[in-house]
Design a protein around this nucleic acid. Structure first.
Lengths: 188, 188
DNA sequence: CAACGCCCTTGACATTTATCAAGAAGATAA
DNA sequence: TTATCTTCTTGATAAATGTCAAGGGCGTTG
C-alpha cells in the first residue's frame, strides 16, 4: 500500500503537495506483540500502516476491551492524545509484524505554515474520523449482532485468519462464544 | 443558558473574540414537532440550543432510529453535511418548543479570515465531537444495557419526563419495553 | 517426540433482550 | 365532558446472548 496514494485519497491534495507531505513520514517497524502506544503514554505520532495489523484497546476493571482494529492502508494513533497532547486513553499493540510510516507531532505542527490549506486538510481528516464513528454508533443501535458481524466481515476480510477472533468479537460488542456461534451459523 | 458562556467553554477563546463570534449567531425559534433539518436537505447552519430539545434520527427499512438527543447548551447540526455541504444523512426534529442561535455557513466560513486562530478552534470543536462518539462506542462494547441507562440518566436527567422514552431507548440501543423494565427494576 | 500455551469451538444452562399483545395513564381535540 | 391518540407498562413467550466448563486444534518450546 503506497502512502502517496493513500494521502491523496484521505487528504485530497494535489500531487505536488502530497509528495511534500509524505517526506515527513518516517519509516518504522513494530514487531508482533510490541506496543505502538503503551498505557499512560502520550501519542506523539500519527502513523500510516504500510503493512501489519494493530489493535486499540483499554483495560476496564473486569476485562480488556478492544475498541478498534486497524490494518494496511489505515492511520493509527490516539487522535485526542495526538492532537491535544493528553495522556492516552488507549493502548495500541501490533498483532503482527508491522511496517508503519510515522508523522511526528513536531513535523505535523509545521505543516500549518508549510501548506496554505493545511487547516482545511486537517479539518477534513478529523471530520472523517468523526463520520466513521457516527456510522459505527448507528450500527450498534440499528443492527443485530449477526448483521454487524456480516458487515464487518465484508469490510475487513483481511483481518480474519490473522487476528484472534476474540478481539474482533470485542470490537463488535459480543463475547467470543457468540461470535463463534454466529460464524458457524452463517458459514463465514 | 448563555451562548457567550458556552462558546467560551467549547471554543476556549478570549472574551473579546467570543463576543465577536457570538454576533453572528442569529436567534430563531422552532416549534414542537417542527423539523430543524428535513430528509434530504443540507445542513446550512450550526445551532446552539438556548432552550428546548431536539432529536437526530434516521429512517431504516424497518424502523426509525434515534441517534442522538440534544438539549439546552448543546450544539445541533449534521456535522458532515454542514462542513462539507453533503445532503444530510439525518433528520432533526424539535421535541419541544425551542429557541436556538444559528450560525449560517456563509458566516461560519468568514471566521477563518476574521479570527487568526479560527482553524485551531474549529479543529478542537470537531475533535471534541469525535471524542464524544469514541466514548459512546466504548460504552456499547464495554457496558451492559442497564449500565448504559444509568450513565445516560445521570448525564441527562433533564430529558426524562420531557422526551418520549422510546427515543431514549433507541439512543441506548434497546427496545422501549426493555428500557421500561430496566427503569422499573432500578427505580429510576 | 512430548509438553505447554493459546485460541477456538461446543455443550449445558442462566440471563438478558426482543416480540407480540393487551391494557392503563395521560395528553389532546372535539 | 367524551373520544381519540400517543405513550408507557406489563405479561407471556420466544429468541438472542452470556457464562461456565470441557475438549480439540495447532503452533511453539524444551
Amino acid at each position: 500500500m503506497d502512502i502517496e496514494v493513500q494521502l491523496q485519497q484521505v487528504f485530497d491534495l494535489p500531487p505536488a503537495q502530497v509528495r511534500e507531505i509524505s517526506q515527513y513520514f518516517v519509516e518504522e517497524t513494530v514487531g508482533k506483540g510490541e506496543f505502538f502506544l503503551a498505557s499512560g503514554q502520550r501519542a506523539d505520532r500519527l502513523s500510516f500502516i504500510a503493512s501489519g495489523i494493530f489493535r486499540v484497546f483499554a483495560q476496564t476493571e473486569s476485562k480488556e476491551v478492544t475498541q478498534w482494529i486497524g490494518g494496511e492502508g489505515y492511520f493509527i494513533t490516539d487522535l485526542s492524545s495526538f492532537l491535544f497532547d493528553n495522556s492516552s486513553r488507549w493502548q495500541i499493540q501490533a498483532l503482527t509484524d508491522a511496517k508503519i510510516l510515522s508523522l511526528y507531532r513536531s513535523d505535523y505542527q509545521r505543516f500549518e505554515s508549510l501548506l496554505p490549506q493545511w487547516n482545511v486538510v486537517e479539518k477534513r481528516f478529523i471530520a472523517k474520523c468523526f463520520m466513521v464513528l457516527e456510522s459505527r454508533v448507528f450500527d450498534f443501535i440499528s443492527l443485530s449482532a449477526e448483521e454487524r458481524y456480516l458487515q464487518y466481515f465484508e469490510q475487513h476480510k483481511a483481518f480474519f485468519n490473522q487476528v484472534p477472533l476474540q478481539f474482533i468479537a470485542s470490537v463488535l460488542g459480543m463475547t467470543p462464544e457468540t461470535l463463534s456461534r454466529i460464524r458457524s451459523k452463517v458459514g463465514g
